[in-house]
């Protein structure tokens, strides 16, 4: 071992470096035992089963409603709380110095950290979906058994078809995807806030405030348009506001998906694209702030 020039050629962008940071971040978050919340989620889903025991349509409805609602809340908590601590913890422990003192561009560091959170959210939403869909499937099987015992022939076929339609409507998986996307938007906002916030508590509080404003924004906008009317200037203002604080009511598509309403593909695609744009914009703004940050 002697002091020789480095054997490796520096790459401007290295997916291997990003993956090293992302997988390490995921491991860090998993070791924080964040998945304990799954137990609470499972209890919520099973608890919902005991409501509306009389009519299976109501039961499926409340199961989907309760489960997707719980998924939204848990994924939101998971998107804000771990993301808020990532950068401050690395700075406080000086781990960030040792990473950035290696040939790692700040863009790769931030991207790796963010991908780690997105992976965590993906695993969490997948596991919650697994619990929810398993419970839904089991309940559907019970409903089918009951129908088979009480009806025959054409009536049975009609009932079976109704049960399957009420349990697993085709909009269910896109609905779960929208839940994930909404959490990803929440994580990107939190990441952005953590690049300039002075404390973790401030980041967490501001993230929740943005979530509240994001949900109420469209209501305020509609009320303003109704009373004042719309001009070119106000249109630009609303667009800027929607960019600064995401219009989270756009993701309320999930509610309609739960009720089994068929959502046109282009509306789903537009919502997904909007989520993707929000995530990309907030990430890049976070990067530009982080790039100029004095460590």
């Amino acid at each position: 071992m002697t002091a020789t020039p480095p054997a490796t050629q520096h790459k401007i962008f290295s997916p291997a470096r990003v993956w090293a940071i992302a997988s390490n971040t995921l491991l860090e978050l998993i070791r924080l035992k964040v998945f304990y919340f799954l137990l609470i989620f499972a209890l919520v889903v099973i608890g919902v089963l005991f409501l509306y025991r009389d009519i299976f349509q109501d039961e499926f409805q409340s199961l989907k409603d309760g489960s997707l609602g719980a998924m939204s809340i848990f994924s939101l908590l998971l998107s804000i709380l771990p993301t808020a601590m990532l950068l401050p913890k690395d700075i406080e422990d000086r781990t960030l110095y040792t990473i950035l003192a290696k040939p790692v561009p700040r863009f790769e560091y931030l991207l790796g950290k963010f991908l780690g959170v997105l992976l965590l959210l993906f695993i969490a939403v997948s596991l919650m979906s697994l619990v929810f869909l398993t419970v839904l499937f089991c309940r559907m099987e019970v409903a089918i058994g009951e129908a088979t015992r009480s009806a025959h022939g054409a009536l049975l076929n009609e009932r079976l078809s109704a049960i399957q339609h009420d349990a697993f409507s085709e909009s269910l998986l896109p609905g779960i995807f929208i839940v994930y996307l909404k959490a990803a938007v929440g994580a990107s906002i939190t990441l952005l806030l953590s690049t300039f916030a002075t404390s973790m508590i401030f980041t967490v509080m501001m993230s929740f405030v943005v979530q509240i404003i994001g949900h109420l924004q469209s209501i305020a906008r509609d009320a303003a348009i109704e009373t004042v009317g719309i001009t070119h200037l106000s249109k630009i203002f609303y667009m800027l506001l929607a960019l600064l604080i995401p219009d989270l009511s756009a993701f309320s598509l999930v509610d309609e998906m739960v009720t089994g309403t068929a959502i046109p593909f282009d509306l789903f695609a537009k919502t997904a694209a909007l989520g993707g744009i929000y995530v990309a914009v907030y990430f890049f703004v976070a990067y530009f702030i982080f790039m100029g940050k004095e460590l």
Partner: peptide
């Protein structure tokens, strides 16, 4: 970033 290929750093009180 390239200049850091040749550097190793140990900060004060690292965790």
């Amino acid at each position: 970033v390239e200049s850091r290929e040749d550097v190793g750093f140990l900060p004060e009180n690292p965790y």
